[in-house]
Write a protein that binds this DNA or RNA. Structure first.
Lengths: 359, 359
DNA sequence: CTTGCTAATTGAAGCGCTTCATCTGGATTC
DNA sequence: GAATCCAGATGAAGCGCTTCAATTAGCAAG
């Protein structure tokens, strides 16, 4: 309770604590880090002194002396995308249970920032780094690994097998989405939007294609777009509704919820019924997916698990001397809502029998 | 280019660089930190050695020796709310221009996490902390300040004048929103949703009340809700549309875009026209505010400026010996879209003559 | 009362850097 | 050519902690 204002400016050090408690420096350190190695009496005295001085350990000194710190750094691509928010939460929860703090850095889809934050964590000698890289390049990964830093890739790995990674099965997600539309009886499918140079989007498209091929009697049209925003969806919806009736798609899947939201709203504005006339399904289960005019079916990647698993891989790499790198690929889940099922809109069991999670 | 794998495991230190470059330790340090104090020849040699060894400075050692680090910590309340995302971006941009890195920590609306991250930044002896506190308590602020840590409050300050803060004028935001509805000729206003114990929400309500009082011939009904999610909005909309025609509000303002989105969608689902029958305005200009069925009018707090200004206050506190604490209160902006203006929906100049920004 | 052992405690070495007082050597001046 | 300077370079002292070898205290057994 009692703690004194910084007299003399300097924050109290362990030395000060030791003096006040009448024990040696080493004992204070032990008392704070491995209390079981210290007599109850000393422990008592040390804690009292800590309290009285308002002592806060200096983590710079600690990690300098110990050779490494206990915080984990997470370099995020885009804090505005709820997938990454979920990843951060999952990582944070898991890190916390093992006594590690998680610090975030947001690269904001900027390659140079991404690299610079990698370096900052590297310089800070963090216990490890979780990294959701941009497509572009993984050179930063090699750089920090050369310095002995441990790093786990999340959400994208560019095919690397030489470090741990947690991925989402994008191809399968696209497959499930298309297959769901096909099972609803839709045959003229449209894959709406997305820049093809993104690995994830290409995969989702491939998955959709596979489902359509399997079905045999269906078609998949593909209209790419440059960005992933909702106006692209509106534009695409406007275009296809202008067509002859037999060329209007009856099922639309989009690699992003934003685009899907644009599609849905534009279709409705033009008098088409969703899902009766056109069923629409998005991707990502963004946190706003239920705030749309009609709640949106989508493919959910379990960001929380991705973050948590990534931490586990990292901890194994840290603690286990004969650690072997592993790449975990998590299956996404279908989440069915009104935009494909209609107002009855309650979730139905998905393929493998589990109930999809409600957001 | 050439850099060698960690032989011997140990990362190369400045000592190693000095040896290889054939200069002293001190010279290496100078070359790296204040190159102008060093001859061109030494600089050359040092940089070459750094390159060859793949040397990365140890920031723990640096901040231990220097007494403080150059990173700034930002403790965020809720990474899922785009206001905080904007604050983070603004802070990050501004910090970067002055050579400070910004590390984020997400308390996820959890008081204990919030306090623990405050401590982590405190222990790391960061240059300063930006803090968006929960209502609950500001005791962590006092704790870290006692240790000499500098801290700037963002978005909420609980009336404190003894530290720097950047706030948003919530009362004025509520006032503007209500006043806008009144200027559209609406007279039966409804303030929809929000837990009243939140300071910001109470303020917004007070502002709305003030506008209605000023108008004289209008009424403001208030229906609180426990949470800020869209289903609360749907519930409220469902309730009021069930009423006798002359008791249905013709203008609804909500302290959150989520609630407003629920209101809009439910009204439309029940056959009411927005904005012809009921004009609706939200609050926060969340990033999904344009992904709604009809784009949503809202009150925008300029998170980016809040973050940037907070960094500036912090830097002044760090650098300026006769710094004085200041509380900055930023005015929010009205952003007018279809949900109050109708399909013409283009932005009109706001009160002070500036054009509202499009999201 | 010894002896032997373990549990606690101690103090010093060192982690990798910054900084400051000190020293060096070449250019400048008279 | 001696005296004066000053940019540059140097090396040691510490920053606050962890850790380890060495020491001491505490206690049961003989």
């Amino acid at each position: 309770m009692t703690s004194q204002t910084a007299d003399g400016g300097r924050a109290p050090s362990m030395q000060d604590v030791a003096r006040l408690a009448g024990v040696s420096l080493g004992t204070v350190s032990h008392a704070l880090n491995k209390p079981e190695k210290v007599s109850a009496r000393s422990l008592q005295k040390v804690l009292a002194a800590v309290e009285q001085l308002g002592f806060v350990p200096n983590s710079a000194a600690r990690s300098l002396a110990a050779g490494s710190s206990s915080t984990v750094g997470l370099v995020l691509t885009d804090i505005d995308n709820s997938l990454f928010v979920d990843i951060a939460r999952g990582a944070e929860d898991e890190a916390r249970t093992s006594g590690h703090a998680l610090l975030l850095a947001n690269s904001d889809i900027d390659f140079k920032r991404q690299e610079s934050y990698l370096d900052i964590f590297d310089e800070a000698r963090v216990a490890g780094i979780l990294f959701t890289p941009l497509n572009a390049s993984l050179e930063g990964v090699d750089r920090v690994r050369r310095h002995g830093r441990r790093i786990v890739l999340v959400n994208y790995a560019g095919g690397r097998q030489d470090c741990c990674a947690v991925l989402s099965d994008e191809e399968y997600g696209g497959y499930m989405a298309a297959r769901h539309l096909l099972e609803l009886g839709r045959r003229r499918l449209l894959f709406a939007g997305g820049p093809e140079e993104f690995h994830a989007i290409k995969e989702r498209r491939n998955g959709a294609l596979r489902a359509v091929m399997e079905a045999g009697n269906a078609t998949l049209e593909i209209i790419p777009s440059r960005r992933l925003k909702s106006d692209e969806g509106r534009k695409i919806a406007a275009e296809v509704t202008g067509r002859a009736a037999d060329r209007v798609p009856d099922g639309i899947l989009s690699p992003s919820d934003r685009i899907a939201a644009g599609v849905i709203h534009e279709l409705m504005a033009r008098g088409l019924r969703v899902p009766e006339d056109v069923a629409v399904i998005g991707y990502d289960n963004n946190h706003f997916a239920t705030e749309v005019a009609i709640s949106m079916s989508t493919v959910a990647q379990d960001g929380h698990s991705m973050g948590a698993e990534a931490i586990n891989l990292l901890l194994d790499e840290i603690r286990n001397p004969d650690h072997e790198h592993r790449v975990l690929t998590l299956k996404p889940r279908l989440i069915l809502r009104e935009s494909t099922l209609g107002p009855s809109g309650r979730p139905v069991p998905e393929e493998d029998g589990r109930l999809p999670l409600e957001a």
